[in-house]
Design a binder for these strands. Structure first.
Lengths: 214, 214
DNA sequence: CGGCTACTATGACAGCGGTCATAGGCGGTG
DNA sequence: CACCGCCTATGACCGCTGTCATAGTAGCCG
């Protein structure tokens, strides 16, 4: 209670795999990883400590709010991570188009599934399913994560010439399709749904950027 | 405690389903309802018996396979239910169009959320998140549920003039978007995402039915 | 040195959840 | 009546989980 570890934003200096930062960040990261796999309820505090190679005693020190706080921070981290990826995708695209951005977003998942298997899904989706009704604070954290993800996408669409009144709806459509396709891909253990939504949505997205839509 | 349970209307009695809802069917149905709300892990066997007003002793009698069997049957029921709704939606439409069908699918959720609150999501999604990695049989049940849902949608699209090679991809796109929008709607406690995907996807869906696509 | 703060280490506890074991009714049939 | 499938009823068990309580260590400061 004394220590105000109220989630200073992670610098995300290197948003890639090894968060070799402090034990606290490792635990948040590990929580997100475990939630991704089995959901919130199946993720035990002890498991998180083990996965993060952090002492169990540190849990109640860094997260006096208990599991609820840890889950909320994991969700927040995931939302910021997804949002930051958008900027990375943009720089990776030779010439930015809405369909190209969406393809990159989808590809992140197909790459993981094809290389590492279908063990994990989206931690934000998992937290929604498990906590939306039972834990108000987590529900709010999830909503914040979705907007932290949607906003950069919408902003990117605007920079590509999508009219302002359609950037946010299209971003929502992209993220909705992606989330749903992730579910189906995990269920089928096949990236088919992911590649399908990327392919089918592409013309609609690019049409919106050409101004000649509606 | 949970005496007030807002008894959800039983599946509209369908002629192809058993006429009398025995305790066994009530338990499967109740399991689906509870999974919809809090996920699989948060749904206890005792809770299911209480919600179904069924004796606890019947659980191990009707479901010797334990919770796994119960969850799998609940998922299967949900998939069949969703598939059957498609036929109902079609008859409800004055003149069937892809966007009209999708609007009906979405409307089922907006209606529920606006009238009964955002307590529940899709049980198939919940089972995917909670069990896809831990329980193989449930993962298969979820995959079967998705195909039991996708097939009627694809078939309906075919009947509306969508070329055969695109019916299944478009059905997948519809269901993906719907599932993702359900997640976002629950998180935000706002039907915005649902109405958005219905509106934004409509022109693409109808264009595919007009033959002039791609 | 003492004192203080940050962190770690463990053990205990209370609760719950799925499952098993056992036994009780209940409605037919012979 | 006995017999016997179906279903119901409970209580117990065991493992797990989040949390608390208490105690210990490390390192900086004065």
């Amino acid at each position: 209670m004394s220590a105000e570890h109220t989630l200073d934003e992670l610098p995300v200096s290197r948003p890639d795999e090894p968060p070799a930062h402090g034990p606290r960040e490792r635990m948040v990261f590990s929580a997100a990883q475990l939630i991704r796999r089995g959901g919130v309820a199946a993720t035990g505090m002890r498991d998180v400590a083990v996965h993060a190679r952090a002492p169990r005693g540190s849990l109640q020190h860094y997260f006096p709010g208990g599991k609820e706080q840890l889950v909320n921070e994991a969700v927040g981290w995931a939302g910021r991570y997804a949002g930051n990826r958008v900027a990375r995708f943009l720089t990776a695209l030779p010439e930015p188009t809405p369909s190209g951005l969406f393809a990159e977003m989808v590809r992140q998942w197909t790459d993981e599934y094809e290389s590492s298997g279908f063990a994990a899904g989206c931690p934000v989706a998992a937290a929604t399913v498990d906590c939306a009704e039972s834990t108000e604070s987590t529900r709010q954290a999830v909503a914040a994560a979705f907007t932290a993800w949607t906003a950069p996408v919408a902003h990117a669409l605007a920079a590509m010439g999508v009219p302002p009144e359609r950037t946010e709806p299209l971003a929502t459509l992209m993220i909705s399709s992606l989330e749903g396709a992730i579910l189906i891909a995990r269920a089928e253990q096949d990236v088919r749904a992911l590649t399908t939504v990327a392919r089918e949505l592409a013309p609609l997205l690019d049409a919106a950027a050409s101004g000649a839509s509606r």
